[in-house]
Write a protein that binds this DNA or RNA. Structure first.
Length: 363
DNA sequence: GTCCAGCGGT
DNA sequence: ACCGCTGGAC
């Protein structure tokens, strides 16, 4: 899709440099994304937080949902955490949603509802780190701050042949400095978009499009056939295994729910009463445990037991099972409450809990 | 099934 | 240095 009015980037003589080539490539190949049509810092912030650790296709519906519900900072600042988490349900990394609310409230109170556009102010807001501050300040105010996200790491590591592991503090500095040295000061917004879009669409992690790459002749990885080895990443930390046994207490009209604390995964979201065990133990042992006997009475029975579901988090592998109870006498704990089945769709539920409840109640 | 991509907070 | 989610690719 050619643009009608393309800037003249191609010098008449000589060769374009790396950054100019990518800029040229971007004009020809960029996706038409809704947040690329605005310099409104609030809308750009919304899109950037949603897109952190998230693919465009997955984030897109959330972007529209949030923008419709919260057309400006003020409306966002007035929301409840429950509502924000509910809107965020299914996106993962829920602290992003909780931090957004804090930031919206801070912007409303301290900046009169005007979303900041300068890096130094942005970097102090909750949920905005170096990448996002650079993105918002360049896209909304054309500050020349180079964005360094996963795409940029990959593009730079390959093109310049940097074999230093990218996930170290030292590398972070190296790549930021290199990215800053490349930035187009006349058009930092376009430059940043180009770097990331190039990484996302052409210089992909697997099967990069080297055959049609505009900068392959200058690319270290292409020259040395090393795209599969760059960038280098240090091995990730091992994950721990957890065994969660969830209890379904329902009469078909109401369900016994649990509100989670803020010191564990899925902070402040809703799930079901749960018994965590050290390993995989039998349902009989679970029902005979002191905790279950105390909470649900001595005659409690398992009416149905689901298969064990594996659910993978960043640093945890969860083995999750749902046990539908009968013959129970509930001793209500502090974080427990009954809710109507029709209200389940108002509660922010972790994916695995949502799947359980969806299958049972046809949500 | 397993692997992997993708930033910020503490 | 360690922690947090999900979906798509293979």
């Amino acid at each position: 899709m050619k643009k009608a009015h393309q800037p003249h980037l191609l010098p008449i003589f000589g060769v374009m440099n790396f950054a100019d080539e990518l800029l040229n490539w971007y004009q020809e190949n960029k996706r038409d994304l809704p947040w690329r049509h605005t310099t409104n810092a609030y809308i750009i912030w919304l899109s950037e937080i949603i897109l952190q650790q998230t693919r465009v296709e997955q984030g897109m519906p959330y972007f529209y949902r949030f923008l419709e519900r919260f057309p400006d900072v003020s409306s966002f600042a007035a929301a409840s955490e429950d509502e924000v988490l509910k809107l965020w349900q299914g996106l993962g990394y829920y602290s992003r949603g909780r931090n957004m609310l804090k930031t919206a409230q801070q912007v409303q109170q301290e900046y009169g509802g005007v979303f900041p556009t300068d890096y130094n102010t942005l970097i102090n807001l909750k949920g905005i780190g170096e990448y996002t501050a650079a993105a918002i300040s360049s896209f909304s105010a054309n500050e020349h701050r180079a964005v360094v996200d996963g795409n940029v790491y990959r593009v730079l590591a390959r093109y310049f042949g940097i074999s230093e592991p990218v996930n170290t503090p030292k590398a972070k500095k190296t790549f930021q400095e290199l990215a800053d040295s490349l930035i187009n000061k006349k058009n930092p917004a376009l430059h940043n978009q180009a770097m990331m879009e190039f990484g996302a669409l052409l210089c992909k992690p697997k099967n990069p499009g080297c055959g049609i790459c505009p900068v392959r002749l200058g690319c270290y990885a292409f020259k040395h056939n090393a795209t599969t080895h760059l960038p280098v990443k240090l091995k990730t930390v091992k994950t721990k295994e957890r065994y969660l046994n969830y209890f379904l207490v329902t009469d078909g009209k109401t369900v016994l729910m649990n509100k989670r604390g803020d010191d564990d995964i899925w902070a402040n979201m809703y799930d079901l009463p749960v018994l965590e065990t050290k390993g995989l133990i039998s349902v009989e042992e679970i029902l005979n445990s002191t905790e279950v006997q105390y909470a649900f009475g001595e005659n409690v029975k398992a009416e149905y037991v689901s298969p064990i579901n594996k659910h993978i988090l960043t640093h945890q592998k969860l083995f999750v099972r749902l046990i539908k109870l009968s013959n129970y006498q509930v001793k209500l704990e502090q974080k427990w409450f009954y809710t109507g089945v029709e209200n389940l769709s108002n509660l922010a539920l972790p994916k695995i809990i949502f799947i359980f409840l969806k299958n049972i109640f046809n949500l």
